[in-house]
Design a protein around this nucleic acid. Structure first.
Length: 573
DNA sequence: TTAGGGTTAG
């Protein structure tokens, strides 16, 4: 077959199998030099699905008799564009190992991949090769380099690269702009923005986003009104800016007047309502959507999970799985669903959903694994939780807090304390949730003085104990029999104690048969909560335990009839 | 090179 005919056949091939046949033909007829063309065609026209093309092209690369930068460069760019950054970087390294000189495609795509993964070390080593192979005047390579340093937060070197560029395009300007904005340096960003010779919509959007993130919506709005053309990202940035500032009403106004909406707009609004606790408005908006997609389902399921409506979250997952919708849940969906199951506190809910996740080939990431740690810990499978915790790529504040709490409620107090120390050793600052778990652990172990020290150390991290932390402390003191100290702590609380705090004291009074404080505690509990039967029966048991049979009987009768009871010497209604 | 979603307490 003539070469021109082969090339035209290749260009018209639309399936991977056709391309493979042509490839076989090339090899049989000694036309190996046409392989780069085949690689280029395969990658450019996406014949077949991504995975099979990727596999086939990699196979070709490994067997090229005369490896060429063009084929390798195209492939590296392909992986980088598909978001397969690890693969792109590893192919680049391989290309380097076999002694091929990279072209600008290869080197800029490898740099982009490092930037997206914030893999500074890899980027720096490619920087050395940029100098070595003489790409110092290629605007694409230099911009990729500049973007890398902006993304990893090294603005000094980013600035140096920018200053030394012989040629710049608007992407170079936008990259340095986004670096300063990411670093929160609005002053420098504004200076650069003013200098951009031909600003595009991305330059404007970046500035708007920077002011919005800094909470300066007035200036963001000023820029939004000034910009010559707006795209969807401009409008969506304004919506999320208002939501971040807590102005859900202004966000809605923007949403209502924008000319075209996409799923990001809908999702941002739904999660805005979710964050302000307005589940009803979120659902109303969700129901108004004509074509619900993965993003909107995820936003609505997350809304239910985050607002303590786990049953509704699971019901919506069920709707989402309807075959006619053809929507496949992803790891975002499952993170919320796991949280919902965890709130229900029974593993049976998750057991019926887990097979779906496995069918969908969902890969556990740290977020999803953390949700599972919490689920297993709450359902008593602490060993399974620990196993997941050990397997995390990076143990962050949330993972530690979930694990500490999990150990706390499962009676593994010393493990909880050890984890807390390990966390501090990794320079992770605890938050209020961490202390809830830790105090729970001390409470279960009956370590009163340690708990007190821990409670007092919260201020070292700038944390102000919440009413729940006081509740746990009352529980710790009370269980250990330090009832007067517990009462004193309640009296000196900087906020109003809730029924939980007084309930903890009441429980302790029952444990140690303390009548006087028990009467006071029950009085407050009844004042704070409508369902009083449990409290009355506790006090009644206290009376019984000290032989005050008449009082005990009277209280029990009262509790049965749900009437309000009067205790001698007390003035509650 | 710009917009958006998930995980920890009670």
């Amino acid at each position: 077959m003539f070469v021109p005919k082969l090339i035209s056949l290749l260009k018209r091939s639309s399936t991977l199998n056709q391309a493979k046949q042509i490839h076989a033909h090339l090899l049989l007829n000694g036309l190996n030099h046409l392989q780069p063309l085949l690689v280029h065609h395969l990658l450019l026209w996406n014949v077949g699905n991504y995975k099979s093309i990727a596999l086939y092209v990699q196979l070709i690369l490994q067997h090229l008799r005369n490896p060429d930068s063009f084929s390798w460069g195209c492939t590296i760019r392909f992986f980088s564009q598909k978001g397969q950054f690890m693969e792109a970087i590893s192919l680049y390294a391989q290309m380097h190992r076999i002694g091929l000189c990279p072209n600008s495609y290869a080197i800029s795509s490898a740099l982009k991949s490092c930037a997206r993964m914030e893999y500074k070390l890899g980027g720096v080593s490619i920087h050395g090769q940029v100098q070595l192979y003489g790409f110092t005047s290629c605007v694409y390579v230099q911009t990729a380099l500049l973007d890398l340093y902006s993304k990893v937060g090294d603005m000094e070197i980013a600035r140096k690269v920018f200053d030394e560029m012989s040629q710049r395009n608007v992407v170079s300007w936008n990259s340095i702009l986004s670096g300063y904005l990411k670093a929160g340096n609005l002053v420098m960003a504004q200076l650069f923005f003013d200098e951009i010779p031909r600003k595009d919509v991305i330059s404007w959007n970046s500035m708007i986003s920077g002011y919005a993130k800094a909470g300066n919506m007035d200036h963001a709005c000023f820029l939004f009104q000034q910009m010559p053309e707006r795209n969807l990202a401009s409008w969506n940035t304004m919506i999320s800016g208002y939501i971040d500032c807590g102005s859900i009403v202004s966000a809605r106004e923007i949403f209502d007047v924008m000319p075209v909406r996409n799923s990001v707009s809908w999702m941002t609004m739904i999660s805005g309502y979710s964050r302000s606790g307005d589940v009803e408005s979120a659902r109303k908006l969700f129901d108004e959507m004509n074509e619900k997609d993965l993003l909107s389902f995820n936003a609505m399921i997350a809304c239910y999970a985050q607002n303590s409506k786990p049953k509704e979250a699971l019901a919506l997952l069920n709707d989402m799985l309807r075959p006619d919708l053809n929507i496949h849940p992803d790891k975002m969906t499952f993170a919320s669903v796991v949280s919902a199951c965890s709130q229900l506190g029974n593993i049976k809910y998750w057991s019926s959903i887990e097979p779906h996740m496995n069918d969908l080939d969902i890969v556990l990431d740290d977020h999803l694994a953390t949700a599972l740690i919490d689920l297993y810990a709450k359902c008593g499978s602490i060993d399974k939780a620990y196993e997941l915790f050990q397997g995390l790529r990076k143990r962050d504040l949330v993972a530690y807090s979930a694990m500490i709490h999990g150990c706390g409620i499962n009676g593994r107090s010393f493990d909880a304390i050890k984890l807390y120390e390990q966390m501090l050793g990794e320079s992770i600052r605890p938050n209020l949730v961490t202390y809830t778990g830790l105090l729970t652990a001390y409470s279960h172990a009956g370590l009163v003085e340690e708990a007190y020290l821990c409670f007092n150390s919260m201020k070292d991290y700038g944390l102000v104990p919440s009413v729940d932390h006081y509740g746990i402390m009352v529980d710790v003191l009370g269980r250990a029999g330090w009832l007067d100290e517990a009462y004193e702590l309640i009296i000196n609380m900087p906020m109003q104690p809730n029924a939980g705090v007084w309930g903890a004291l009441l429980l302790a009074c029952r444990l140690h048969n303390h009548v006087d404080l028990g009467e006071i505690a029950v009085q407050h509990c009844i004042k704070l909560e409508s369902d009083t039967a449990g409290y009355c029966s506790l006090l009644s048991s206290i009376y019984a335990s000290v032989g005050k049979w008449d009082d005990a009987k009277r209280l029990r009768m009262g509790a049965k009839g749900k009437k309000l009871i009067k205790v001698p010497g007390c003035s509650w209604i």
